[in-house]
Design a protein around this nucleic acid. Structure first.
Lengths: 188, 188
DNA sequence: TTAATAACTAAACAATCGGTTAGTTATTGG
DNA sequence: CCAATAACTAACCGATTGTTTAGTTATTAA
């Protein structure tokens, strides 16, 4: 009945994801998105509605991409050791093709939020963090001898540490980050 | 010989600092700076040359403000316990008048850096971080029984943790941050 | 083959970005 | 008291922000 799209939405979203991942939300402009996604502004708007729409789709796609290491964590069933492996897996995951560490798409975006930021984006990023914390909590529960309070505290400790690692990964070098991980888990 | 300035440069810088602290570098616009500093663009440019100039002055002023807690750390002479106290002091320092935690001005700005960012700003923020790491190293040296390698590793661990705490402080709540600090120092 | 429809191109939108400049006002030394 | 000078106001600069729209091209059902 009409003309076909000349691009695949999931493909152009993955390209956009790279930009948001490296630069965060605000720094990534529509002009950059046009170039990276290889399609016109009109196409971007007709497919995703707005810049925010593109970003939210990218977060979804990022979540899927992250399944490679969160599934491993889920299936491992070896408690806190599994979480430690996840930390190392994340550092590999956070690299681009040139070994430049770009951190976590969600953490990078969360770091530029303030009181006036878009509530929908805020909420989406918050849910993402809670979901990862939930995975940590499941693994902490596999350990024996923890009270419920201790389980919650350990889970909080690991999610805050993970957030810290994501942020720090853009600034510090590999040996420093490894020392950080080793110390995070040294008392377990 | 000519008209007097109607503002005090150190005072308007302190006002600008609040903005950069809360919002980072890019999000803070000249328009916002005009309003917050209470002076015209012309005055801003004649006093500080550029937006970057204002920011760099703010970093200097921030460093001075931070002396309140870094001096305490220096004078404490009680090793790693002093560093732990510094972490707690920082959380208080990072609050605004409404108890909203705005993190660290330097960390917030560092979190929005990428490959294309201004090298002068990059360098200034990097030096700042190295200076704080140096303070940590001095305190670690006060402990006995550490090899030189262990001193370096502990110092790296604490500066990465501090960076993590600064970033996380904008996202997580007070109990979670306290648990984080307690665990950071639990094996010492 | 043609009319309908949707995806394309490209120009334009108002708003805002960091930064400049012409013209006015206030202060001061001579 | 007045000429020199610097700080003020406010309009303006070109570039870029996210977004929209008019006009063209390709596809498909009838």
């Amino acid at each position: 009945m009409a003309r076909k799209k000349e691009y695949i939405e999931s493909e152009v979203i993955d390209k956009a994801m790279e930009l948001f991942w490296k630069n965060g939300y605000e720094t990534t402009s529509m002009q950059m998105l046009e170039k990276q996604m290889g399609i016109n502004k009109f196409s971007i708007y007709s497919s995703f509605g707005s810049k925010k729409g593109v970003f939210l789709e990218c977060v979804k796609s990022y979540r899927k991409k992250l399944l490679a290491i969160t599934d491993k964590l889920k299936d491992s069933n070896n408690g806190i050791v599994g979480i430690k492996e996840y930390f190392y897996d994340f550092l590999e995951f956070a690299k681009d093709n040139n070994d430049f560490i770009k951190g976590c798409l969600v953490t990078n975006a969360a770091n530029e939020l303030n009181e006036d930021s878009d509530p929908v984006i805020k909420n989406q990023l918050s849910n993402f963090t809670k979901e990862i914390r939930g995975l940590f909590e499941n693994n902490v529960r596999q350990e024996t001898g923890f009270t419920e309070v201790q389980i919650q505290e350990q889970s909080d400790y690991f999610i805050v540490s993970m957030f810290g690692l994501s942020s720090a990964s853009r600034v510090f070098n590999k040996p420093q980050l490894h020392i950080f991980i080793e110390n995070i888990f040294s008392n377990t």
